[in-house]
Amino acid sequence: MFPGHDGMPDFSGRGEDLDTALEVLHGTRATGIGAVVAVTGEAGIGKTTFITELRERAVGDGFATGRAAALESGGIAPLAPLLTALRSGPAPVLSQADFGALATYASRPIWLVDRLTGQLRARATATPILICVEDLQWADAATRYVLRVLPAQLVSSAIVWLFSSRLPLDAIADDVAVHEILLGPLPLSVPEAGGNPLLAVALTRGQVAEAVRHMLSSLPSTAKELLTAAAALGPSFTVESLGALPDHDALARLAREGLLADDGRRLHFRHELLRQALLI
């Protein structure tokens, strides 16, 4: 991971987004009705910082919290992001005994959902819960399945599910309120960074190459190769200039991750720093 990749000097520019998420927390605490908050945005835009701030506010408001992230490598086992979150921190959401009771269900997601539903429902009767799972673009299929089903099973419990992803999250959860927050560029003092805190920090540290590697880390090889080829065409280019049979799936992925912008006629690099780094 790029060191300090999600650091921001302060929380200016995110007040409205934070207020939206806090309203969800307060609503769940007051009504006992569960909800999902889905935070998306390009790599380095501040998702980790946002979740850290929200989790600290939740702890101060009496929530039990758990937090973990899916790993680019796929992790040590299916369901690792969720199970790690449930046992994270000094006061884990699940007790050691409850967590141990899940061992026999680890390879059976349907039964695991049933067992976890009972455990989390009981826990939420005593205190509201915030469960944070980051980087869902790398989550395994079992984790995605359980995180889609559990919020609906527990909609009548005081549990907020906080997810983050570089990509838009499709089919986030069934039959439960989903509050989507898209983190956009910030008004930073480093204009060359294009509002991206990762690039701003990288510029001050002389670590732009490392930052770019982090930004591209979730891309398939075809998308990376296409982006590198496009960099040689300039800050903007047409699909036709890429040559015969451009990979439209790869182009769509680059646009979804916020690396390219499409004005209907030409594609543009969102960050000139990224384009220049690809040419080195």
Results as ranks from 00 to 15, higher is better:
F269L: 08
V133L: 01
G243E: 10
S165V: 11
A106V: 14
A68Y: 08
D19C: 04
R29W: 08
L254A: 12
I129S: 07
R108S: 03
P220I: 11
I33K: 15
A139G: 08
A177F: 05
L102R: 08
S88Q: 05
G60A: 02
E192G: 00
G264Y: 08
A80W: 00
T49K: 06
A80G: 00
G184A: 08
L278Y: 09
M215D: 00
P191A: 04
Q137R: 07
L25H: 07
L136D: 04
Q137E: 15
V155S: 12
R266T: 12
R166N: 07
A171Y: 11
R275G: 05
I33F: 09
P128H: 12
A250E: 06
E180W: 06
A101Q: 15
I129G: 02
A70R: 09
V190T: 14
E240L: 12
F63H: 03
D135E: 14
P9F: 03
T125S: 12
T49D: 00
A97S: 13
L86E: 07
L169R: 09
E257T: 08
F269E: 05
L120Y: 02
T49P: 01
D140V: 13
L242V: 04
R14P: 05
D249I: 07
G264C: 13
T104V: 15
T204P: 01
S165G: 10
T127A: 15
R55P: 00
S73D: 15
D98Q: 15
F237Q: 09
A177Y: 06
G7P: 00
I280R: 12
L216T: 13
A35K: 07
G194A: 02
T49C: 10
G264V: 09
Q96S: 12
G44L: 11
V113D: 13
S156F: 06
R265L: 10
L251F: 05
L154R: 05
L183H: 04
A173V: 07
G184C: 03
L162P: 03
T84R: 00
E192T: 08
V24C: 11
A103W: 02
F50A: 11
A200Q: 07
A142T: 01
R115S: 09
E272P: 01
G234I: 10
A91K: 07
S73P: 00
A252L: 14
R55C: 02
R266G: 01
A244K: 08
S156E: 15
T204K: 12
S236Q: 14
R256Y: 04
G60M: 06
L203G: 04
I110Q: 08
L203Y: 04
S107N: 01
A250M: 10
A229S: 14
R29M: 09
G75C: 05
A70Q: 12
L120K: 09
D98V: 04
A193Q: 04
